[in-house]
Structures are given as C-alpha cells and as structure tokens.
Amino acid sequence: ENKKPKATRHILLIRHSQYNLNGHSDKDRTLTGLGQEQAELTGQRLATLGLKYDVLIHSSMTRAVETANIISKYIPGIQRVSCDLLREGAPIEPDPPINHWKPDSVQYYEDGARIEAAFRRYIHRAETNQLEDTYEIIICHANVIRYFVCRALQFPSEGWLRMGLNHGSITWLTIRPSGRVILRTLGDSGFMPPEKVTRS
C-alpha cells in the first residue's frame, strides 16, 4: 500500500501568447501588445479558478518566459522553474503531412528526443509520497502540448498536428493515482473576448 500513488495530479498546459514572428532570433521574438493582453487574460482566468497552484514551469524560450512573467503576477508567491526540454520543436513527423512545414530528419531526431524527455519528466501519475492533489502549470508551445496530449491519451503521436491551439489557451490534463488520464479541456480560450483570440 505504501508503494501505491494516492493523489491526483492536475497539469494545466498553457500555450504562450502571440509573439513577434519577425524577430531574428529567439530573444527578439517577444510578445506583441495583443500577446501581453492574452497573457493577462489567461492569468486572470487561472486566478479566477481559485485553485492552489503548486508550481509554474515554463519553457526557456523568450515568448514563454514573458508569458510566465505576466501570468505569475496573478499567482503571487508561486514557485517558478525554467526548463530547456520544453522549448518548441518538431516532435515527430505528422500524419498527414503538411506542405508548408517540412523540418528535416535531423530536426525530428533532435527535437523529438528532447520533447519525449520532457513528456517523461512532467507527465506521469503522482509519486508515492504525494499525499494531496496538486495543480501544476506548464507554459510552453503548441507542438509540445499537442504531442503531450497524444502521448498521454495513448493516441498515435503522429496525429499531433490534427489539433490546433489558440494563443494563451489552457489544456488541462488530470492524471489519477491509478494512472488513468483524463483530458478535461483542450485549448480552452473561451475566457477571452473573440477579438483577442489568435492562433498565429
């Protein structure tokens, strides 16, 4: 009995907000004005849910860091962790493929291993010593979140590109102590006014 998990983990995956696509490098790809508004709305939404959040983990890419900076204002005192494994990339060749985005094999090989490592690090049932339910926020990127969803639900990983996520949206995974996984929401952005909703 001591070796059985007892608690539930709730993982809220947030896609970063809209950012400047024209930046030369990652540090130049900062949030747009609308992106900052989206992050404010997501932060307000998370606060309104009234949950006791345990940790805020974010990708080390600039757009995720800026999104985390804004959201964390609404969750004062929350522990923050930056993670390179959560950086955007090409997790696995999608099926069906699309014409306007074709990374080479090396990209899939490198990014795929890294994103899978991120999945194994963050998406699992509670440890045996966890006694209470936890609520963890992970701020990262669309490809990473979609891949996580496919893997968590044991759907074919190649189907990750069949889903779309809005900027600042919330994807909620619940993992029971039994290992059962429930996708409660996928890409929820209903809390944003329609004119504030973007995908690219």
Binding site: K4, R125, Q154, G179
Partner: peptide, 18 residues
C-alpha cells in the same frame, strides 16, 4: 502485455504491479 489497441496501464513506468 496490453492487448493491441488497448490501454497500457504502465504507460509512465510507475505502475506498482510492475
């Protein structure tokens, strides 16, 4: 072994029985 197409209960390598 999970049946083909079935749910793998040890998907996160944390199933106590394993």
């Amino acid at each position: 072994e999970p049946k083909k197409g079935g749910w793998d209960t040890n998907w996160d390598r944390r199933e106590p029985a394993f």
